[in-house]
């Protein structure tokens, strides 16, 4: 079988906030054609169940990733690029533990830098003394965010879809009673 090259669309990293006051977490990615579409797809893929109040997406190409091993083996930049123009802002996402988790890491703040090296130095300075198993720098201007004013229609309806929650399924005993009574639901 031969056919023209397929496109599955570009990849966008997804940051999801589970509740007010909690940090956004890197939960995975979606394939989508453009930023607006990516945000809709992020909601579609990562908010099928009720555990979100906010969602951000960023093109995968706008994310620089460094593991602890890469940071340790990284050669110090020999020559710092001159800081031309306004510094770029970056979101900093950190993985802090090897514990089992659904998320890679969580947002710890924003840094500025004229280039990635400067931003990385700023992020590491900010996290000095804390565990850094891996770090992402995400170009802040590439991030597209869900509208906080629409949080309820975006994330609320999943709460009503109780049939997706294991807790609504009857135990062995009640299943037998239901069957005996012919309860349809």
């Amino acid at each position: 079988m031969s056919h023209a090259a397929d496109t599955q669309w570009p990849r966008w990293e997804v940051l999801k906030q589970d509740a007010e006051g909690k940090p956004h977490q890197a939960v995975g990615s979606v394939h989508a054609a453009d930023a607006e579409h990516a945000l809709l797809m992020a909601r579609t893929v990562f908010a099928r169940r009720p555990s979100a109040v906010s969602m951000w997406v960023a093109p995968a190409a706008s994310v620089r990733s460094f593991t602890a091993q890469e940071l340790a083996e990284r050669e110090a930049p020999t020559e710092r690029a001159p800081a031309a123009g306004a510094p770029e802002r970056y979101l900093v996402v950190r993985k802090a533990s090897h514990r089992r988790s659904m998320a890679f890491g969580e947002l710890v703040g924003e840094v500025e830098g004229a280039n990635v090296d400067e931003a990385l130095a700023a992020a590491l300075a900010r996290l000095a003394g804390e565990p850094v198993l891996a770090l992402w720098l995400v170009e802040a201007r590439a991030v597209v965010r869900s509208d906080p004013a629409e949080a309820d229609p975006w994330f609320g309806p999943a709460r009503d879809k109780t049939y997706k929650q294991q807790s609504v399924y009857s135990s062995r005993a009640t299943a037998r009673q239901d069957a005996a009574k012919g309860v349809p639901r």
Partner: peptide, 10 residues
Amino acid sequence: ILEEDIAIAN
């Protein structure tokens, strides 16, 4: 595509 499969099922 997978993402839209999930979307239309929603």
